[in-house]
């Protein structure tokens, strides 16, 4: 049987035909996924790009006004730049913090500590909880008469109205976000740590490297693939932060637009204020920002490890 098959493939045409057949089969098997991707991911993305050039409030008839008009209006809108500022500040603080915290916890929990499993579960737990639930929980913690201020009162500090005060509202959401995502990234780092060969540490110890040196010179560089994944995912996640702002501010982005992120503004413009074109333009803007940052991170961290 097999002899016959090999003989048929020996001719060039045979190989080409076999190739074509293989490709067709491959496409056939991936077709369901491709259709889903095209319908629910690629299609809407292209449609959003189209929508960024229309004037439409969801109820009237859509008409084309051109990309120039919408983008000009968007880029001259003070609220848009407030949202960009909020999103960038949010990402710039949350992403590095959660990465460092995740790394620290991962290194600690990679040691042979008592009740290690329990701690791993405890730190991972926030990331599998619904963000709606954790947001509501933190609203109670950050309440003027809530847990956090109760704790501060022990030390004689009269805590602020965290969520009601424009100066603290975004910081409150940052704390919530760091708390809820660090655990997930910790698990990613833990997996990365297990992949580092023990022999390298042993060699370093023989050479006289101390604990800190081992972490900084071996663990951190060798974790680069995990770090890359975490930085990219963390950046995209923080730049697109929506749910926590939405729930904590009741959908308004308040107080005084201090928690309006780009994603929340997109939602408000499209669904609340009936400016679909503007919202879609902001979507395209967010896409470009995320793309640029991802490319930059890829240049910085995306290289393979060389031992």
């Amino acid at each position: 049987m097999s002899v016959v098959r090999v003989a048929r493939h020996e001719t060039r045409g045979g190989i080409r035909r076999w190739h074509r057949k293989e490709t067709a089969a491959a496409y056939f098997f991936t077709l369901p996924t491709l259709i889903l991707l095209a319908t629910f991911t690629l299609g809407p993305a292209v449609y959003a790009f189209f929508l960024s050039g229309v004037s439409w409030n969801l109820l009237n008839t859509m008409h084309w006004v051109g990309w120039g008009t919408n983008f000009k209006q968007l880029l001259t809108m003070p609220l848009f730049w407030t949202s960009v500022k909020n999103s960038v500040v949010f990402a710039a603080i949350v992403m590095p913090t959660q990465t460092v915290i995740a790394l620290i916890f991962a290194v600690i929990l990679n040691q042979n500590l008592p009740a290690r499993g329990l701690f791993r579960l405890a730190f991972f737990f926030p990331s599998i909880s619904s963000s709606a639930v954790t947001s509501l929980m933190f609203m109670w913690i950050f309440n003027k008469l809530g847990l956090l201020n109760g704790l501060l009162a022990w030390f004689g500090i009269n805590g602020p109205d965290w969520i009601g005060n424009p100066r603290f509202a975004l910081s409150s959401i940052m704390i919530l976000n760091i708390w809820s995502t660090s655990g997930y990234f910790m698990v990613v780092f833990l997996a990365g740590l297990q992949a580092i060969p023990q022999s390298i540490y042993e060699a370093a110890m023989i050479d006289g490297a101390n604990g800190l040196q081992r972490i900084l010179k071996i663990t951190v560089p060798l974790l680069r693939p995990s770090t890359f994944f975490i930085v990219v995912m963390g950046m995209i996640g923080t730049l697109q932060m929506f749910d926590q702002s939405f729930i904590i501010s009741g959908g308004t982005g308040g107080p005084l637009n201090s928690t309006t992120t780009i994603a929340l503004l997109i939602y408000q413009e499209i669904f609340s204020y009936g400016n679909v074109g503007l919202g879609a333009a902001a979507t395209v803007f967010l896409f470009v920002i995320v793309l640029v940052f991802t490319i930059l991170v890829n240049r910085w961290l995306g290289k393979p490890i060389e031992y």
Binding site: T252, G253, G254, P255, L256, N257, Q268, S272, Y273, G274
Partner: peptide
């Protein structure tokens, strides 16, 4: 019609200030 944003945020923001 058209006052959605005004009602939702503008009024509240100026009042809060």
């Amino acid at each position: 019609n058209g006052f959605d944003q005004y009602v939702n945020t503008t009024l509240a923001n100026e009042t809060l200030l």
